[in-house]
Protein backbone atom coordinates (compact mmCIF):
# COMPACT_ATOMS: atom_id res chain seq x y z
CA UNK A 1 0.00 0.00 0.00
CA UNK A 2 1.46 3.33 -1.05
CA UNK A 3 0.28 5.40 1.88
CA UNK A 4 2.05 8.30 3.56
CA UNK A 5 3.33 6.23 6.50
CA UNK A 6 4.80 3.59 4.21
CA UNK A 7 6.55 6.30 2.20
CA UNK A 8 7.99 7.89 5.33
CA UNK A 9 9.19 4.51 6.65
CA UNK A 10 10.97 3.95 3.35
CA UNK A 11 12.37 7.48 3.28
CA UNK A 12 13.79 7.13 6.79
CA UNK A 13 15.50 3.91 5.72
CA UNK A 14 16.86 5.77 2.68
CA UNK A 15 18.30 8.43 4.98
CA UNK A 16 20.17 5.57 6.65
CA UNK A 17 21.47 4.42 3.28
CA UNK A 18 18.97 1.76 2.18
CA UNK A 19 17.06 3.22 -0.78
CA UNK A 20 15.46 0.00 -2.04
CA UNK A 21 12.14 0.52 -0.28
CA UNK A 22 11.62 3.89 -1.97
CA UNK A 23 11.45 2.41 -5.48
CA UNK A 24 7.61 2.64 -5.75
CA UNK A 25 7.80 6.42 -5.25
CA UNK A 26 10.83 7.30 -7.34
CA UNK A 27 10.27 8.70 -10.81
CA UNK A 28 13.39 6.89 -11.97
CA UNK A 29 16.80 7.68 -13.34
CA UNK A 30 20.16 8.56 -11.86
CA UNK A 31 18.79 11.94 -10.67
CA UNK A 32 16.94 10.13 -7.87
CA UNK A 33 20.14 8.94 -6.22
CA UNK A 34 21.65 12.41 -6.45
CA UNK A 35 18.57 14.04 -4.95
CA UNK A 36 18.36 11.52 -2.11
CA UNK A 37 22.00 12.19 -1.37
CA UNK A 38 21.15 15.88 -0.85
CA UNK A 39 18.59 14.96 1.83
CA UNK A 40 20.94 12.42 3.43
CA UNK A 41 23.78 14.96 3.53
CA UNK A 42 21.55 17.75 4.83
CA UNK A 43 20.29 15.60 7.69
CA UNK A 44 23.81 14.45 8.60
CA UNK A 45 25.13 18.02 8.32
CA UNK A 46 22.25 19.33 10.40
CA UNK A 47 23.17 16.99 13.27
CA UNK A 48 26.89 17.73 12.87
CA UNK A 49 26.28 21.50 12.76
CA UNK A 50 24.12 21.30 15.88
CA UNK A 51 26.87 19.44 17.78
CA UNK A 52 29.53 21.85 16.49
CA UNK A 53 27.37 24.80 17.60
CA UNK A 54 26.80 23.25 21.04
CA UNK A 55 30.44 22.15 21.52
CA UNK A 56 32.47 24.90 19.82
CA UNK A 57 35.70 24.53 21.81
CA UNK A 58 35.86 20.78 21.23
CA UNK A 59 35.08 21.33 17.53
CA UNK A 60 37.83 23.95 17.22
CA UNK A 61 40.43 21.87 19.08
CA UNK A 62 40.37 19.00 16.57
CA UNK A 63 37.97 19.71 13.67
CA UNK A 64 38.54 16.40 11.84
CA UNK A 65 38.42 14.18 14.93
CA UNK A 66 35.37 16.03 16.21
CA UNK A 67 33.51 15.75 12.90
CA UNK A 68 34.11 12.00 12.65
CA UNK A 69 32.77 11.33 16.14
CA UNK A 70 29.93 13.87 15.77
CA UNK A 71 28.71 12.19 12.56
CA UNK A 72 28.67 8.83 14.34
CA UNK A 73 26.89 10.34 17.32
CA UNK A 74 24.30 12.02 15.09
CA UNK A 75 23.56 8.71 13.37
CA UNK A 76 23.39 6.61 16.52
CA UNK A 77 21.80 9.18 18.83
CA UNK A 78 19.68 11.40 16.55
CA UNK A 79 17.89 14.36 18.10
CA UNK A 80 14.60 13.44 19.74
CA UNK A 81 13.03 16.86 19.19
CA UNK A 82 13.30 19.72 16.70
CA UNK A 83 14.76 22.12 19.24
CA UNK A 84 18.50 21.43 19.07
CA UNK A 85 19.51 23.97 21.71
CA UNK A 86 20.58 21.30 24.19
CA UNK A 87 21.24 18.44 21.76
CA UNK A 88 24.24 16.27 22.57
CA UNK A 89 23.90 15.81 26.33
CA UNK A 90 25.74 12.49 26.15
CA UNK A 91 28.22 13.54 23.45
CA UNK A 92 31.08 14.27 25.93
CA UNK A 93 30.75 10.68 27.17
CA UNK A 94 31.09 9.41 23.60
CA UNK A 95 34.29 11.43 23.19
CA UNK A 96 35.64 9.99 26.43
CA UNK A 97 34.66 6.45 25.45
CA UNK A 98 36.52 6.93 22.17
CA UNK A 99 39.67 7.73 24.17
CA UNK A 100 39.49 11.45 23.36
CA UNK A 101 39.73 12.50 27.01
CA UNK A 102 41.07 16.01 26.29
CA UNK A 103 38.26 16.65 23.79
CA UNK A 104 35.75 15.21 26.26
CA UNK A 105 36.84 17.69 28.96
CA UNK A 106 36.55 20.60 26.52
CA UNK A 107 33.10 19.34 25.53
CA UNK A 108 32.06 19.11 29.19
CA UNK A 109 33.01 22.77 29.63
CA UNK A 110 31.11 23.67 26.44
CA UNK A 111 28.11 21.82 27.84
CA UNK A 112 28.18 23.70 31.16
CA UNK A 113 28.34 27.00 29.24
CA UNK A 114 25.33 25.88 27.17
CA UNK A 115 23.33 24.86 30.23
CA UNK A 116 24.05 28.26 31.80
CA UNK A 117 22.76 29.89 28.59
CA UNK A 118 19.39 28.13 28.51
CA UNK A 119 18.52 27.49 32.18
CA UNK A 120 15.57 29.15 33.89
CA UNK A 121 15.59 32.80 34.91
CA UNK A 122 15.40 33.75 38.58
CA UNK A 123 16.34 36.69 40.78
CA UNK A 124 19.85 36.50 42.27
CA UNK A 125 20.66 37.06 45.93
CA UNK A 126 22.41 40.36 46.63
CA UNK A 127 25.02 41.25 49.19
CA UNK A 128 22.32 43.12 51.09
CA UNK A 129 20.24 39.95 51.36
CA UNK A 130 23.10 38.18 53.14
CA UNK A 131 24.02 41.22 55.23
CA UNK A 132 20.47 41.35 56.58
CA UNK A 133 20.90 37.94 58.19
CA UNK A 134 21.90 37.65 61.84
CA UNK A 135 25.08 35.58 62.35
CA UNK A 136 23.11 32.57 63.62
CA UNK A 137 20.57 32.82 60.77
CA UNK A 138 23.44 33.15 58.29
CA UNK A 139 25.05 29.86 59.34
CA UNK A 140 21.72 28.07 59.05
CA UNK A 141 20.63 29.59 55.73
CA UNK A 142 20.55 27.40 52.64
CA UNK A 143 21.70 29.36 49.56
CA UNK A 144 21.38 27.26 46.39
CA UNK A 145 23.28 28.38 43.30
CA UNK A 146 21.31 30.48 40.79
CA UNK A 147 19.65 28.21 38.16
CA UNK A 148 21.70 29.94 35.42
CA UNK A 149 25.01 29.22 37.17
CA UNK A 150 27.30 26.29 36.33
CA UNK A 151 30.69 25.55 37.83
CA UNK A 152 33.30 22.83 37.77
CA UNK A 153 36.76 21.93 38.97
CA UNK A 154 39.05 20.39 36.38
CA UNK A 155 42.54 21.13 37.62
CA UNK A 156 45.41 21.13 35.13
CA UNK A 157 45.21 23.43 32.12
CA UNK A 158 41.86 22.26 30.70
CA UNK A 159 40.02 25.43 31.66
CA UNK A 160 42.79 27.68 30.31
CA UNK A 161 42.77 25.75 27.04
CA UNK A 162 38.99 25.99 26.81
CA UNK A 163 39.18 29.76 27.39
CA UNK A 164 41.72 30.20 24.60
CA UNK A 165 39.58 28.17 22.19
CA UNK A 166 36.47 30.19 23.07
CA UNK A 167 38.32 33.53 22.99
CA UNK A 168 37.30 34.17 26.60
CA UNK A 169 39.63 36.47 28.53
CA UNK A 170 39.47 35.91 32.28
CA UNK A 171 41.72 37.48 34.89
CA UNK A 172 43.47 34.71 36.82
CA UNK A 173 45.24 35.97 39.95
CA UNK A 174 46.65 32.68 41.19
CA UNK A 175 47.49 29.26 39.87
CA UNK A 176 44.80 27.82 42.14
CA UNK A 177 42.17 29.84 40.29
CA UNK A 178 43.17 28.28 36.98
CA UNK A 179 41.69 24.90 37.91
CA UNK A 180 38.07 25.91 38.34
CA UNK A 181 35.50 27.81 36.35
CA UNK A 182 32.26 29.59 37.18
CA UNK A 183 29.79 30.28 34.35
CA UNK A 184 27.46 33.18 35.12
CA UNK A 185 25.15 35.44 33.15
CA UNK A 186 26.54 38.96 32.81
CA UNK A 187 25.18 41.64 30.45
CA UNK A 188 23.26 39.27 28.20
CA UNK A 189 26.08 36.78 27.79
CA UNK A 190 27.68 33.89 29.63
CA UNK A 191 31.01 34.77 31.27
CA UNK A 192 33.56 32.22 32.47
CA UNK A 193 35.01 33.50 35.74
CA UNK A 194 37.96 32.14 37.67
CA UNK A 195 37.05 29.87 40.58
CA UNK A 196 39.58 28.82 43.20
CA UNK A 197 39.49 25.65 45.27
CA UNK A 198 37.74 27.30 48.21
CA UNK A 199 35.12 28.92 45.97
CA UNK A 200 34.44 25.62 44.22
CA UNK A 201 34.11 23.72 47.50
CA UNK A 202 31.80 26.41 48.88
CA UNK A 203 29.48 26.40 45.85
CA UNK A 204 29.59 22.63 45.57
CA UNK A 205 28.43 22.35 49.18
CA UNK A 206 25.69 24.92 48.58
CA UNK A 207 24.52 22.93 45.55
CA UNK A 208 24.25 19.82 47.71
CA UNK A 209 21.82 21.70 49.96
CA UNK A 210 23.86 22.23 53.11
CA UNK A 211 23.51 25.58 54.93
CA UNK A 212 26.11 28.36 54.62
CA UNK A 213 27.88 27.51 57.90
CA UNK A 214 28.60 23.95 56.77
CA UNK A 215 29.50 25.20 53.26
CA UNK A 216 32.10 27.50 54.81
CA UNK A 217 33.55 24.56 56.73
CA UNK A 218 33.75 22.56 53.51
CA UNK A 219 35.55 25.45 51.81
CA UNK A 220 38.08 25.69 54.64
CA UNK A 221 38.63 21.95 54.60
CA UNK A 222 39.44 22.17 50.88
CA UNK A 223 41.63 25.26 51.20
CA UNK A 224 42.64 25.88 54.85
CA UNK A 225 44.31 29.23 54.14
CA UNK A 226 41.46 30.67 52.07
CA UNK A 227 40.10 34.14 52.81
CA UNK A 228 36.47 33.05 52.96
CA UNK A 229 35.07 36.56 53.19
CA UNK A 230 36.68 37.48 49.86
CA UNK A 231 35.66 34.18 48.28
CA UNK A 232 32.04 34.65 49.38
CA UNK A 233 31.92 38.32 48.34
CA UNK A 234 33.13 37.46 44.85
CA UNK A 235 30.50 34.75 44.47
CA UNK A 236 27.74 37.15 45.52
CA UNK A 237 28.98 39.87 43.15
CA UNK A 238 28.94 37.33 40.32
CA UNK A 239 25.28 36.57 41.06
CA UNK A 240 26.10 32.97 41.90
CA UNK A 241 23.24 32.48 44.38
CA UNK A 242 19.50 32.35 43.83
CA UNK A 243 17.37 34.68 45.93
CA UNK A 244 17.34 33.35 49.49
CA UNK A 245 14.66 31.00 50.68
CA UNK A 246 14.69 32.28 54.24
CA UNK A 247 12.90 30.48 57.06
CA UNK A 248 9.60 32.22 57.77
CA UNK A 249 9.85 34.75 60.61
CA UNK A 250 9.05 33.11 63.93
CA UNK A 251 5.60 33.91 65.27
CA UNK A 252 5.68 35.35 68.78
CA UNK A 253 8.61 35.15 71.18
CA UNK A 254 11.05 32.28 70.77
CA UNK A 255 11.04 29.71 73.55
Amino acid sequence: MRDLSAFQDAFERALDGDERGLAPWLAGGPADAEGLKVYRNTVAKGRLDALAANFPAAAAADPAGFAALALTHGRERPPARPSLMLYGEDFPDRLAAAGETALADLARLDRLWLEALFAADAPAASGGDFAALSPEDFAGTVAPPHPGVRFAWFGGDVVARWRRLRGAATAISSEDEAGGVLFVRIDGDIESLALDRAGFAFLDACRSGVPLGAAAEAALAAAPRADLQTVFARLITAGAFAALDRPPPAKGPRP
Binding site: S83, L84, A119
Partner: peptide, 9 residues
Amino acid sequence: ENYMSLGGP
Protein backbone atom coordinates in the same frame (compact mmCIF):
# COMPACT_ATOMS: atom_id res chain seq x y z
CA GLU B 1 13.03 26.10 17.99
CA ASN B 2 16.05 28.21 19.00
CA TYR B 3 14.10 29.95 21.76
CA MET B 4 12.32 27.05 23.46
CA SER B 5 14.39 27.35 26.63
CA LEU B 6 13.26 27.83 30.20
CA GLY B 7 15.02 31.19 30.31
CA GLY B 8 18.34 32.83 29.60
CA PRO B 9 19.84 35.80 27.81
